[in-house]
Nucleic acid binder design. Structure first.
Length: 110
DNA sequence: CGAGTGACCGACC
DNA sequence: CGGTCGGCCACTC
């Protein structure tokens, strides 16, 4: 918490994602000012397991709306289950109506 | 302290 | 039109 690291900032934004909504790594990266470094966002998510409180990494997907990071969850189908649990329709690791459910921090948070 | 790494994105051939 | 490659940059070992 005391560490004002880039990771914590990513977690902050990720935690701001409303339930039933999703965002992309690039959107968060752009919001943080590191647009070109979307990898860092994903990398931060990699350490999300060590972050507290736990970060809803399942609400963060790539710009295709695909559960790219589902493989990194304890259960390979856990991410999909979580999203479904929040009312998000997921099919074959792909979020339905992704554009509609997309939550852009740059526009929503401003 | 140097080098490797990564759940992405976009550009180029 | 599709695959390949590079960049970006903060963190860990």
């Amino acid at each position: 918490m005391d560490k004002d690291t880039f990771f914590d900032r990513v977690y902050e934004v990720a935690r701001l994602i409303p339930v039933g909504r999703v965002t992309s790594y690039g959107a968060i990266a752009e919001y943080l000012g590191t647009k070109g470094s979307a990898r860092m966002v994903g990398y931060a998510m990699n350490a999300s397991g060590t972050a507290q409180p736990r970060v809803p990494a399942h609400r963060v997907v790539n710009r295709f709306g695909m559960l790219s990071g589902k493989s990194h969850f304890p259960g390979q189908n856990l991410m999909e289950e979580m999203l479904k649990s929040e009312g998000i329709e997921v099919e074959n690791d792909l979020i339905k109506d992704f554009e509609n459910l997309f939550w852009d921090p740059n526009k929503e948070l401003l």
